[in-house]
């Protein structure tokens, strides 16, 4: 499979076989500290996301390449009203690939349509964040040794959670059982449920305590207070879905907890030291996957 020069914009662009290839390649990737020597990566963050930016910069640095860019649009020419198209056309002359994070949905696709060099989407509004999804798939595969036949629960903000939409779609095509755990106010939108692959049955509940014992993976997302008009409703939810050692007593010992981070207090810090916590491993896997992707796309590794 050839990935040199390819854009990474949406999980929709990848077949099952391509996803498996990317994960295999990431697992076996032996980093070389000069694979991308002399190559330059632009990181254009039109909205801040410290972890995503740092993980790309770390990946690029460890392969011998360098990064240019901005992490705060208020100091760049964007504030002066430059169009996205003009920014992309200018920047592509400076580098070998572009990472873009932008608050508008579809911005990364537009950038990729304009640029002649590869573009990687690091989050476009509420739409896609494919390197996060690939990291999540990689983490599950590495921890469980497989990507199918698993019982995976999603907890928290399933309505607005971009990571949940993207990951559940990808996992559904690998035949898993998916559990969506949320209050009715934050449940999975029908449009996303409809696009799930039918080979994966789904179950919906608002009771974590009743089904946590069935799960192999529990994927937790942050519930954002600004989504609620009623602060009491928010408080109630926060407490219902708080994961602590007590809640873990109901879980299988090998059940793993994932979270795209940063967390607020969905997961008690006492859980960090347990065998169940996988979220910091997940964060560090993000660098591994991004390294492998950069080597494939910019370096033409196979």
């Amino acid at each position: 499979m050839q990935f040199r020069g390819r854009d990474i914009i949406s999980m929709r662009d990848f077949s099952k076989a391509e996803i498996e290839y990317l994960l295999d390649f990431s697992l076996n990737f032996k980093e070389s500290d000069h694979a991308l020597k002399g190559k330059v990566l632009s990181t254009l963050f039109f909205e801040p996301s410290t972890r995503t930016r740092l993980s790309f910069e770390s990946a690029m640095a460890s392969l011998g390449g360098s990064c240019i860019g901005f992490s705060d649009p208020s100091v760049s020419s964007i504030k002066k009203g430059e169009s996205l198209s003009d920014t992309i056309k200018t920047v592509e002359g400076y580098c070998n690939a572009i990472i873009i994070r932008h608050p508008l949905e579809g911005s990364a696709r537009l950038a990729a349509d304009i640029a002649s060099i590869p573009v990687i989407n690091a989050g476009d509004g509420s739409n896609q964040h494919p390197t996060q999804t690939l990291t999540d798939l990689y983490t599950i595969r590495k921890s469980k040794g497989k990507l199918s036949g698993l019982r995976i629960g999603f907890l928290g903000d399933l309505k607005y959670g971009r990571t949940v939409h993207s990951l559940s779609l990808a996992l559904s095509s690998f035949s898993n059982k998916l559990f969506f755990i949320s209050s009715s106010a934050l449940s999975m939108p029908d449009s996303y449920l409809e696009s799930l692959d039918r080979s994966s049955p789904t179950e919906h509940t608002d009771r974590l305590d009743e089904i946590i014992g069935e799960l192999d993976i529990l994927y937790v997302t942050r519930i954002q207070q600004e989504r609620f008009t009623d602060p009491l409703e928010y408080k109630k939810l926060k407490n219902t879905y708080h994961i602590n050692l007590d809640m873990l007593k109901r879980a299988k010992p090998e059940m793993k907890i994932m979270h795209p981070l940063p967390r607020v207090d969905e997961i008690d810090t006492s859980v960090d030291a347990t065998e169940n916590s996988l979220y910091f491993q997940q964060a560090s896997n993000g660098v591994t996957v991004r390294k492998a992707l950069l080597a494939l796309i910019i370096g033409g590794a196979k």
Partner: peptide, 14 residues
């Protein structure tokens, strides 16, 4: 037109 007001096509010339 795309009815998603947060779609890039409603903000950029595309």
């Amino acid at each position: 037109r795309c009815i998603n007001t947060n779609c890039v096509t409603n903000h950029e010339k595309a």
